[in-house]
Design a protein around this nucleic acid. Structure first.
Lengths: 129, 129
DNA sequence: CTTTACTCTACCCTGAGGGGAAAGTATATA
DNA sequence: TATATACTTTCCCCTCAGGGTAGAGTAAAG
């Protein structure tokens, strides 16, 4: 099938599918006379797989890794779990940073009257030495 | 003072300070004969201000806005508080997404034995239709 | 045969700078 | 005064994961 149908079936944009072909992530055959990319059902399945993994916040490189595990009948679940646990730990670290940030901002905001007077503890904090 | 000293005093990299000059955020005089940028104490104070705001996750555009409020003696604290509350709400939204993501991944990982067998619920989920 | 829909490559754009090259300037030392 | 070293300048390409658009070619439908 052509790229438009492959994109529709995998719920990706044509741009994204073409990008994955360019970086060698999912590389379909290309019709010699027309130059059109021709996707098989299996390639569409890979596109779907990647789409899901991307939603789970895996980077393209991580997707590449997961995809090769997915294609390897002899891979162990240990390898996949390792990548997933690493991703969870990255998320935890991001969560902590964001929570800290939220606390600080929320503290500043709660101390700011937010009225028509110029006095503002938020700007005071930002301009503190 | 030259850019090196301004960068050191404001705890920013020279690249960053030069970038801020290029985009017109903090634009110092430039010595006509040498072409060197010449920073005043006030400009260094602005750089510090921006550095802090960036740590609070404000974008460059938001920094620009905060900086103009900072420089406006007649601004009200209401305006500053509004921007800050919007930022907090952005952070809350990011926090929710990350938490949801973590829950899903953590559920998958806990159902994966992570042993030497090929059976893997994580990949099963990713390849589900 | 023409219109419409689809696809191709190639180029520039995003945010917030980082890295490095080549060239000019300033300062300290011999 | 000459040289070595440190500092600064502009210019260009790179990041990540594609998005937007242009111009041209191809396929399918009327």
């Amino acid at each position: 099938m052509n790229i438009g149908k492959a994109a529709k079936l995998s719920n990706l944009t044509i741009k994204t599918v073409r990008y994955y072909a360019n970086i060698g992530l999912v590389k379909p055959e290309q019709n010699i006379s027309s130059g059109y990319r021709e996707y098989t059902d299996e390639e569409v399945a890979k596109l779907k797989f990647i789409g899901k993994a991307r939603k789970f916040d895996f980077s393209i490189d991580e997707c590449k890794e997961l995809l090769s595990l997915y294609e390897d009948k002899n891979r162990t679940s240990k390898e996949v779990k390792k990548i997933t646990l690493e991703k969870i730990s990255q998320i935890d670290s991001k969560l902590k940073d964001l929570k800290d940030l939220r606390n600080e901002l929320s503290f500043l905001a709660s101390n700011c009257h937010g009225d028509d007077k110029p006095n503002c503890p938020i700007l005071d904090e930002l301009s503190k030495n």
